[in-house]
Design a protein around this nucleic acid. Structure first.
Length: 577
DNA sequence: GCCGTTTTCGGCCCGACTGTTTTCAGTCG
């Protein structure tokens, strides 16, 4: 994704937030929000487009096209600057608190002068908000809880945002004189769902120019430390980035060391000690005479410890060392195994791209098949109807004639509070494949939630449970259900559990996928794409699956079309016999 | 602010939930 698109989308989103706080017209707000999503999901680089070209982007008219040009040329938009002058910076951040929207944000500012998270917390602690009109004890309680949940996330950055920041910096430094190798390490290389800070590793014999280039990167806001082998900066987005420079001949040892995890490193260092060796970021040495054993590649170091190379996504000391020793590391799913995406939206509901464009994008990804799964009627805002679904099916059949990959017609159904679904079985039977997801009633009791999900899985037409816990990494905790019961039921009913690749979701999480796998459940790694560019998120879902030790055989969308259809048919026929 | 086979004005994503209120406002998906 082009960086300029993201930056422009962020400016438009901020615009929308500020208009909302100022009490502006709700349709105008929505227009900005929609434009932001459209720009972020636009497949081409905005930088190449003039006012006229920009207007060809959906949801961008003349006014916004001009603002986008202004943004590109000056780095800002004067109307946005004027709004910023009227709304304290901290106030917008309050909108990130679930349960607190623009009206309440404005209210606490106007009536109590609160314009930061800290001030809001103080007021909540002092019970100073319950007397405001429309507020009460319960509101205070809910907001306090929301904030606590946010803080427990610890200001960590979702994987997607961290990775694009890291890749941008790696690309900018790759060409610097003296840089022999460069990569990101740490939790980012292990593809953990959230990242505390970014670790970059450079192999070079000439550190000065590398450090100078690093600390003066455009994205750097300020420098925390600058030395000859290690420097730390904070980016404009508030992300800390550490850069280490090592000699090229110890690249492998350093990469191993800085990739971690700490727990994994401790385990293999213990192994080294027992073998009369010593492992550090500078290499594997004989303990007695300090002669070098291995350092140049990770494979080398692992091999001299008696281990095969262990994929970074497994390096958490969750049994990978034992498995490696026993020769039983999982045959992990990889991005090349994926034969199709089973969860994609189009502009028939809340997607941004047309059916034709989504199909073309799936084809461009080299898929053998893809499923179009627009929202079902009970998500009322999407205004789906049986007629529209059938019409889409007819269009899909027409596209199939020259598609070059198998086009499956599906839908993303809504699991209701009692586990029932949008359409009767007779209508569901007309689809090729169906995803069912929770989009409402997140706070049911654990028992009710368990029963609800299992009932949905028992429907013979439900093939995939979409984003099973509905968690949002920055906003919403996962719903609670009895994992053992649900995962057992998934295995028993022949229902795949989705590993949703959206960077804010990554749902199932790595740990839950690992548990589900132990109960014999199958998986679908989907992108839940709402635009063409979202198809690229697949790598996050695949990495999450790897972290959950998921093997490719356990992922239904690595199967051939024939096997996938059998999977669907088997469940359906079991129900009728 | 966008958009148009209902085309330059007047619609636009609608309904549920929560907590507040005593008929409704704000938030969310």
């Amino acid at each position: 994704m082009a960086r300029s698109n993201e930056a422009a989308a962020e400016a438009l989103t901020e615009f929308a937030d500020l208009i909302a706080i100022m009490g502006g017209d709700s349709y105008r707000i929505r227009a900005y929000e929609k434009a932001a999503r459209s720009v972020a999901g636009f497949a081409h680089d905005l930088d190449r487009l003039d006012v006229k070209g920009l207007q060809a982007i959906p949801a961008i008219g003349k006014a916004l096209a001009e603002k986008l040009v202004e943004f590109r040329e000056t780095g800002s938009i004067h109307e946005l600057d004027e709004l910023r002058a009227q709304v304290p910076a901290g106030l917008r951040a309050l909108l990130g608190i679930p349960g607190l929207g623009p009206k309440k944000a404005r209210q606490v500012y106007d009536q109590l002068g609160i314009s930061s998270l800290g001030e809001l917390l103080d007021a909540l602690a002092a019970q100073g908000l319950r007397d405001l009109p429309g507020w009460g004890a319960k509101t205070e309680e809910n907001l306090t809880r929301s904030i606590r949940q946010m803080q427990e996330a610890g200001g960590r950055i979702p994987l997607g945002a961290a990775l694009s920041q890291a890749e941008e910096m790696v690309a900018a430094l790759e060409g610097v004189a003296g840089v022999r190798r460069i990569t990101y390490a740490g939790s980012l290389r292990r593809m953990q769902d959230t990242i505390g800070d970014i670790d970059l590793l450079v192999a070079s014999t000439d550190t000065e120019p590398v450090m100078a280039a690093f600390t003066s990167l455009r994205t750097v806001d300020h420098v925390l430390a600058q030395g000859s082998t290690k420097s730390s900066v904070v980016t404009a987005k508030g992300i800390q980035v550490d850069l280490r420079v090592v000699s090229p001949d110890v690249w492998g040892a350093a990469l191993l060391y800085f990739t971690g995890s700490k727990a994994h490193n401790v385990r293999i260092r213990e192994m080294a000690v027992r073998a009369g060796l010593k492992l550090s970021e500078y290499g594997l040495f004989h303990a007695d005479d300090e002669t070098l054993v291995a350092a140049e590649t990770e494979e080398d170091v692992y091999e001299h410890l008696g281990l095969p190379w262990i994929p970074p996504t497994l390096r958490e000391d969750r049994g990978e060392v034992e498995a490696a020793l026993a020769g039983s590391l999982p045959d992990l799913v990889d991005i090349g195994h994926i034969k199709g995406d089973l969860h994609m939206h189009t502009d028939l509901t809340d997607g941004l791209a047309s059916l034709e464009d989504m199909v073309a994008a799936a084809k461009a990804h080299g898929y053998r098949y893809c499923a179009i799964t627009d929202h079902a009627p009970l998500l009322t805002m999407q205004r789906m109807t049986p007629e529209k679904a059938l019409e889409q099916r007819a269009r899909l059949a027409k596209l199939q004639e020259h598609a070059g990959l198998a086009l499956l017609h599906g839908s993303e159904l809504n699991i209701q509070e009692d586990g029932s679904l949008d359409w009767p079985d007779e209508f569901l039977a007309g689809f090729d494949v169906l995803v069912a997801s929770i989009h409402s009633h997140f706070r049911l009791s654990k028992a009710a939630m368990t029963k609800r999900i299992i009932r949905a899985m028992e429907n013979p037409y439900v093939n995939v449970i979409g984003h099973p816990t509905t968690r949002n990494l920055t906003k919403r905790p996962p719903v609670e259900f009895d994992t053992e019961e649900v995962f057992k039921a998934a295995a028993r009913t022949g229902t795949a559990l989705e590993i949703n690749s959206f960077p804010d979701r990554l749902d199932l999480s790595d740990q839950m996928a690992r548990t589900a796998r132990e109960y014999g459940a199958l998986f679908a790694i989907d992108t839940d794409s709402h635009s063409v560019v979202h198809l690229d998120n697949l790598r996050f879902g695949v990495a999450t699956a790897q972290r959950g030790w998921v093997e490719h055989k356990q992922v239904v969308n690595t199967w051939s079309l024939r096997d996938l259809r059998r999977f669907v048919e088997r469940k359906r026929s079991r129900a009728t016999t």
